[in-house]
């Protein structure tokens, strides 16, 4: 067992974990943050995407011990206090989700994308989301959702 201390959604946690515990397992099992999903075992699908120290990462390919001392944001903490992040709102406005399973990872990836590129082209968005599978939407409305969010965020800034 190894002791880890980390901040998740602004709250500090300290636990003993087996070194083989994945960050995704830790978030889901230990912290009951089940919005982070596990859809594959090859780091391909992106359903487990969370933010670690301000970067979108695949929490199924990071050991909980590697996250010791980090700050993690999961979908549950993306927009505190019951508000919605622009990307979350965009997904609702543009029907960017159907079954919802890939959605949380997709939103976390998209939020990171807009953080770094506030005015992405359609191609930027498609390229930027290549690490996330969606089997329901054909990505059409996901692209529109991210475009909606980009516009909404830029209106907030201006």
């Amino acid at each position: 067992m190894s002791k880890i201390t980390l901040k998740v959604n602004q709250k500090s946690h300290s636990h003993d974990v087996e070194p083989r515990t994945l960050l995704a397992h830790y978030l889901r099992e230990q912290l009951s943050l089940t919005g982070t999903h596990i859809g594959c075992d090859t780091s391909s699908c992106g359903s487990c995407t969370v933010h670690m120290d301000g970067m979108a990462v695949k929490s199924c390919t990071i050991l909980a011990v590697q996250a010791d001392g980090s700050e993690i944001t999961t979908i549950e903490g993306l927009a505190p206090n019951g508000q919605l992040h622009a990307v979350q709102q965009g997904f609702k406005e543009c029907h960017g989700l159907q079954c919802g399973f890939c959605t949380t990872g997709m939103i976390m990836a998209a939020a990171d994308l807009l953080e770094r590129n506030p005015d992405p082209s359609e191609e930027d968005i498609r390229h930027g989301l290549e690490g996330n599978f969606c089997r329901c939407t054909g990505y059409h409305n996901i692209v529109r959702s991210v475009q909606w969010a980009a516009k909404s965020m830029s209106e907030l800034v201006n």
Partner: peptide, 10 residues
């Protein structure tokens, strides 16, 4: 149904 899915509450 979207509210619960986009907030991780599905």
């Amino acid at each position: 149904e979207d509210k619960r899915f986009i907030t991780g509450k599905g």
